[in-house]
Measured scan of single mutants.
Amino acid sequence: TGIVNVSSSLNVRSSASTSSKVIGSLSGNTKVTIVGEEGAFYKIEYKGSHGYVAAEYI
């Protein structure tokens, strides 16, 4: 489990890349469940599926 540490919002992406499609966003202080790690990204549970967020902001 981690907490989103941004002042505005954090993009949730379809894969572990900044060039991948943005599938949603999370606001600051949102609690997320981390299920894996790929490079600089965490794989998280997101809306019944999975998404990827930049690990530096969690």
Rank of each mutant, 00 (worst) to 15 (best):
A16Y: 04
V6T: 13
L26A: 02
T18Y: 14
S15A: 14
S27I: 11
S20K: 02
S20H: 04
I23P: 00
Y57A: 09
Y57H: 11
S8L: 10
K43P: 02
Y57D: 08
S9M: 11
E38I: 09
V32M: 03
K47S: 08
T18Q: 12
N29P: 06
S15Q: 12
S20F: 06
V32I: 08
E38D: 09
G39K: 06
G2H: 08
K31H: 11
G51D: 01
G24D: 02
S19L: 11
G28W: 13
Y52G: 00
V35I: 14
S14L: 13
I58T: 02
V22C: 08
S20A: 13
V12K: 00
S49G: 15
V6G: 10
G28I: 10
S17N: 12
K43L: 10
Y52C: 02
I58R: 00
H50N: 06
V4H: 04
G48F: 05
A54W: 15
L26M: 05
L26N: 00
G2F: 08
L10F: 03
G36H: 06
G48C: 07
G39V: 03
E38N: 06
V53R: 00
T33M: 09
T33H: 09
V4F: 05
N5C: 15
K21M: 12
A55P: 02
I3E: 05
F41K: 01
I34C: 04
A16T: 06
V35G: 01
E38M: 08
L10R: 03
V32N: 00
Y42V: 08
G39T: 03
Y52N: 00
E56N: 07
I34S: 00
Y42C: 07
V32F: 04
S9L: 10
Y57W: 09
N29G: 15
R13L: 15
A16R: 04
V22H: 04
K31R: 14
I34Q: 00
Y46P: 00
S8T: 14
Y42E: 03
G24M: 05
T30N: 05
E56Q: 12
A54N: 10
E37R: 15
I44V: 06
V12Q: 00
G36K: 06
S25I: 15
V22R: 04
S15T: 10
G2T: 06
I34F: 03
L10Y: 02
N5M: 13
Y57E: 07
S25N: 10
V53C: 03
K43E: 07
L26Q: 02
E37L: 15
N29T: 07
Y57C: 15
S19F: 08
G48V: 03
V22S: 06
Y57I: 03
V6S: 13
H50W: 15
G39D: 08
S20Q: 02
S49Y: 09
G36T: 05
N5E: 06
L26G: 00
E56P: 04
T33R: 11
E45P: 04
S19R: 12
V4I: 08
V12E: 01
S19V: 09
K43C: 09
S19W: 07
K31Y: 12
T33C: 15
K47T: 05
G39H: 05
G2P: 04
Y46C: 04
S7K: 14
V22T: 07
S49N: 09
E37N: 09
T30M: 10
N11C: 15
G48A: 06
T18A: 13
A40T: 09
F41A: 02
H50V: 14
S15G: 12
S15W: 07
V6H: 11
I58H: 01
V6Y: 07
V12F: 00
A54R: 13
R13Q: 11
S25C: 15
T18D: 13
G2L: 07
E38F: 10
Y52R: 00
E38V: 10
A54P: 15
S49L: 11
S15R: 11
S7Y: 08
S17E: 08
F41L: 02
T1D: 08
G2N: 05
I23Q: 02
E38S: 08
V12A: 01
A54I: 14
T30I: 08
G2C: 12
H50K: 04
S8I: 12
T18P: 14
A16W: 03
V32C: 03
F41Y: 10
Y52Q: 00
S14E: 15
T18M: 14
S8F: 13
N5Q: 08
V6N: 08
S9P: 11
K31M: 13
T33Q: 09
G2S: 05
F41M: 04
S25Y: 14
E38A: 07
Y52V: 00
A40R: 10
V32S: 00
V4A: 05
S14C: 13
K43Y: 07
V22A: 06
N29R: 11
V4S: 05
I58Q: 01
S25V: 15
G28R: 13
I34V: 06
I23S: 01
S9T: 11
S25T: 15
S49R: 11
N29A: 09
I58K: 02
K43V: 11
K43G: 02
V53H: 00
A40W: 07
F41W: 14
V6W: 06
S14D: 11
N11W: 10
S14N: 09
N5W: 08
V35Y: 07
N11F: 10
V35L: 15
R13V: 09
Y46G: 00
T18G: 12
K47C: 15
A16C: 06
Y42G: 03
E37A: 13
V32T: 01
A40Y: 09
G24R: 01
T30H: 07
F41P: 00
V6C: 15
S17W: 04
V53W: 00
G24H: 02
G48K: 06
S9E: 10
F41V: 02
A40E: 14
G51C: 04
E56Y: 08
T18E: 13
A16F: 03
G48Y: 05
K31L: 13
S15C: 11
I44E: 02
V22G: 02
S15E: 13
V22Q: 04
S17K: 07
A40P: 14
Y57L: 08
G51F: 04
F41Q: 02
Y42Q: 03
R13G: 04
I58V: 10
V6K: 12
I3Y: 15
G48W: 05
I23T: 03
E38L: 07
S8A: 10
Y42T: 05
V35K: 05
S14R: 10
G36E: 06
E45G: 03
I58D: 01
Y42F: 10
T33G: 03
I44T: 01
L10M: 06
Y52L: 02
G24S: 02
T18R: 11
I58S: 01
G2D: 04
E56T: 07
N5G: 06
E45Y: 08
Y52D: 00
A16V: 05
R13T: 12
L10D: 02
T1S: 11
V4Y: 04
Y57P: 02
S17L: 07
I58Y: 03
T1W: 15
A55M: 15
V32L: 05
L10Q: 05
N29C: 15
S15N: 09
Y42S: 03
G28E: 09
S27T: 12
H50S: 07
S25H: 13
E45K: 09
G39I: 03
S14T: 08
T33K: 12
S14W: 08
K21E: 12
R13A: 04
T1F: 14
E56I: 13
E56C: 12
L10K: 02
Y46A: 00
L10S: 03
I58P: 02
T1G: 08
G48I: 03
A16H: 05
R13H: 15
S19Y: 08
A54Y: 13
V4N: 03
R13K: 06
A40G: 14
I23K: 03
V53S: 00
I3V: 12
N11M: 13
S27W: 09
I34L: 05
T33Y: 10
I58M: 04
N5V: 12
E45S: 07
A16P: 14
I23L: 09
F41N: 02
S8Y: 11
I44S: 01
E45L: 13
F41C: 05
V6P: 07
E56H: 09
F41I: 02
G39S: 05
I3T: 09
L26W: 02
E38Q: 08
S19H: 12
T33A: 07
I23G: 01
S49D: 09
E37V: 15
K47G: 12
V6Q: 07
